[in-house]
Structures are given as C-alpha cells and as structure tokens.
Nucleic acid binder design. Structure first.
Lengths: 260, 260
DNA sequence: CTTGGTATG
DNA sequence: CATAACAAG
C-alpha cells in the first residue's frame, strides 16, 4: 500500500502544471494533500480525479486559503474534521482531516505557518500543543496510524539547509524543534528519517524566493509520522524531488507499507 | 507636429508588451497617456523614456489606479493638474494634466468610467459637467488647444459597434451622447470625426471579454478635441489599430498638425 | 517569488 | 478578460 503526503500549494495551479502526471507516475493508494486553496465547486470543470478514486475535501472558510484533501482509491471512511478542541472547533482553516482505509487511519494535517506575523506564531504554538493532544490517543491503536502533512517545522540540523542562519526563523526555533523531539519521545516515528538514517540531508520544501530550489536550499517540513503498528509495516519512504520542481514548492513524500 | 493620445491600460504592462516599439514607429512629438496606473518610482528601473523626451506623470493617490502622463520631445511647460473645481480639487484620481508646448496647449484627460456601479456613474456625470466648464475658457484661445484622452463616451451610432444593444450602457447613454453633442455645439471640434467624415465606423477601444477585438466589436471613446486654431492647423488624424492589439485594449489616436 | 482573492475597468 | 494591489506562505 502506497500513501503520499503533498502540499500542493493551490490545487488549481497544480492541475495547470500537470499534477495528473504525478498521480499516474507515483500510483499511490492514498494522497493526503495540503494547501489545496480551493472549494469543491472551484475545481476546474474539465478536470477529473484519477480513475477509480474518491476525494474528501476539507477547505478553509476563507477562499483561496489553506485546506486539505484526501484522495483514495481504496475504500475510505471519513472519521472527522478538525481537532474538536477549543482553539478552532469548526477547523475553519481546513487543517485536519481524519480518514480510515481498512485498518489504516490517516490524519491529514496542515500545521499553521508562523512566519507572517507574531500573532500567527502564537496561534501556531497553541495549535501545535492542541494537535499533539489530539493525536496522542491514536498512538496506542492496533490500527496502522499515520499522521502526516506539512508540519511547518524542520526537526534537526539535517532537516534544513542552513541551521545556523535559521536559528531564529519560525519553523526552526529551538522550542519548536523540542516540541518535535517530544512528539517522537511519546512514541511517534518519523518514518522518513528512520528509513534513510540520521545523516541524510534531504528536503521537501524550497522557498520560491531567490534560487533556493536550484541550489537545494530547502527544509524538510513534510512528514509521515507513524505509531508502532505503522513502523512495523513500513517498507520504504522517499521524497520525489521532481514534484517539488514541476508542480509545487513542496515535494511529495511517499510511504510504502507491507500489506497486512 | 504629431500629437498622440493613448490609454495604455497600465504603463508597466505596456512596457512589457513593447510600447517602445510604438514610440519609435509612430514617432510623435507629444504623447498623452491615460491609465498609467503607476507612480514614477514604480517604473521599471531598466526602462528609459524615448531618447530626448521628458515626462510629466500625474498619478492617482490610489496605487495601481488611473493616472495620466504626458511625454514630450519638444519643450514642455506644466500648466496645471486637475480642474481646481469642488469635486476633487487635488485631482486625487490623476485625471487631468495641462501642458504647454510652444503655442500648443494640451489637456490630457481621463474621464471616469461609470460602468462599475451607479455611484461611479453619478461621479462621472458630475465630473463631465465640471470638466466642460473647466475647458470652456480655452475654446477662444489663439493658441492651438487640444483636449484629448479617454472620454469614456461614444458619441454617435458610428462610434460604437452595436448602438442598439448599448443604449442602456454607461458610455452610450442618451444623455451622455447629448452632453457630447453640446460640447461640439460650444465649438469644440472632434478632429478624428471631421477628418474621416461622419460615416466611418472606426473604433479606439475593444473589451477584453469574448472575441470583441477579433470581431472589431469596439467603441470610439478616445478623442482629440480642438478649438478653432487647432481645427485650422489639422492635417490628419488616424487610429493605429495595431497598438490596440499588441499593447493595450485601446489604440493610439494620432493627430498631425501643420507647423505654425 | 508564487498563489489566489479583490477592485476596477 | 486584463491590470495591479494585497494577504499569505
């Protein structure tokens, strides 16, 4: 079974740039997309989902902003939207979508960015704490649980091109990195990192400014985190850098798990 | 002496699309541009005016909106901005710029559009009346006086592709057309119309919607109006339809006058 | 630098 | 349908 997370940075732009080619090429069972920036009714009329798939789209209330969607070619059951917490009980920003696909539970997540203003950084941090609480009960499930998406945090110095220069950047602040470490201490597995080992510097996002993409000045902020059952079923994880060139400023992160 | 009026629909876009080619090709002494939608400091750093010319730019206060500019390769003296009336004494929308070029006085005008909402139609009509008062004293000048620009009104049935279907459209309302007739009764000469005669249907603007440009479904709303002295010096007037294809949704209107 | 929304024409 | 500002990332 193949599961992918991808921040598409506007699904309509992604469609124009040929996202379909990647749907075909990567041939996944489930796609968790973030930042779709689109309501269902805004999808181009002449576009259709990959053959045999269905999509659950959970948009933000604000048009053209945020929003996640999960596309599946295996039976999909919606388990919920949002975190039911006090911060944003209706998940008006379209950031969390939970689905079940047989014995696999997926939490498609788009964690807020804090880089625009201090107020949003505060929001991000409150959100982070609430999300950690929200996913905690899933840790001990016997189901394969994968919480994945754009978490807007690079964890280690090997998850960012220039750790020194970004020590004060939102997304690489010491307490954000600690929060991430705590998450792993609780029992979540950073599947890509565990698959490739601690030393690889491989990124999933590159700024559009300057020559960041060409010079591979990126960050790894797109994750697949798994519980014990997921870790045991993991076969391989890779990042398709090509998708981060042609379609989005993020690359798809691809997980293969052994069948049950 | 060659004098041109042209609504460029954003001078920065016009520069990208090759307005310089038209500066060279048409080789005018004075250009009256409307809808420059630009402050001086926003002009591209790598762009320069045609050799030997100077420009007076009178922008709107609101960024990216309206604004007129006059470019001259002969000595130019600024006579004033705005109409000094009560409607908009500072001409905050950048709609009127008066210049002198030896014995020629030019009133570069961008008359408000009324098509967005009724409130703007009211504004347009008040503006029209005030402008007529403003230019009236220039009628009896011994100088050549040319009031020109985008007047946002098609005068006769030969100034619009579909007079029947537009009888209720702002820009072709009966009272707007009457206002135009009154202007001519006062003594202003519609130089293009007097040059080509009453029967020609030649337009200066085409909507960007549909196939209006391809099907020549246009309006003549860009004018050069002259006083008696101007009428006597008139040699020819033509509309360069090519400029309305390659650079703007409006075409340049070109006046040649005999030298004094 | 790019997305998408909006105001204006 | 196009220009340009803007908010957001």
């Amino acid at each position: 079974m193949r599961i992918v997370t991808w921040n598409v940075n506007g699904i309509r732009a992604a469609i124009r740039k040929g996202i379909d080619k990647f749907f075909d090429k990567i041939d996944a069972d489930v796609w968790m997309l973030q930042e779709v920036r689109c309501l269902s009714e805004q999808l181009p009329k002449d576009w259709s989902l990959p053959e045999g798939t269905e999509m659950i789209l959970h948009p933000a209330e604000k048009k053209g902003y945020s929003g996640v969607a999960t596309i599946s070619r295996i039976e999909m059951q919606e388990l919920g939207r949002g975190m039911k917490g006090k911060l944003d009980p209706q998940d008006s920003e379209g950031r969390v979508l939970v689905t079940r696909h047989n014995d696999v539970v997926l939490v498609n997540t788009y964690l807020p960015s804090g880089s625009s203003k201090e107020e949003r950084q505060q929001y991000k941090e409150t959100w982070m704490d609430q999300w950690r609480e929200f996913i905690r009960p899933l840790l001990d499930s016997d189901d394969v649980v994968i919480v994945a998406g754009d978490l807007n945090i690079a964890h280690t110095e090997n998850d960012i091109w220039n750790p020194k220069g970004n020590a004060k950047s939102s997304g690489f602040l010491p307490h954000e990195r600690e929060w991430f470490s705590d998450l792993l201490s609780e029992g979540w597995h950073d599947l890509f990192r565990e698959h490739v080992g601690p030393d690889e510097k491989i990124f999933s996002w590159w700024s559009n400014r300057g020559q960041a993409r060409a010079k591979d000045r990126g960050w790894r902020i797109d994750y697949l985190l798994g519980n014990k059952a997921a870790r045991e079923r993991m076969k391989s994880v890779e990042i398709d850098r090509q998708g981060g060139l042609e379609v989005s400023d993020h690359a798809p992160v691809i997980l293969d798990i052994h069948s049950s």
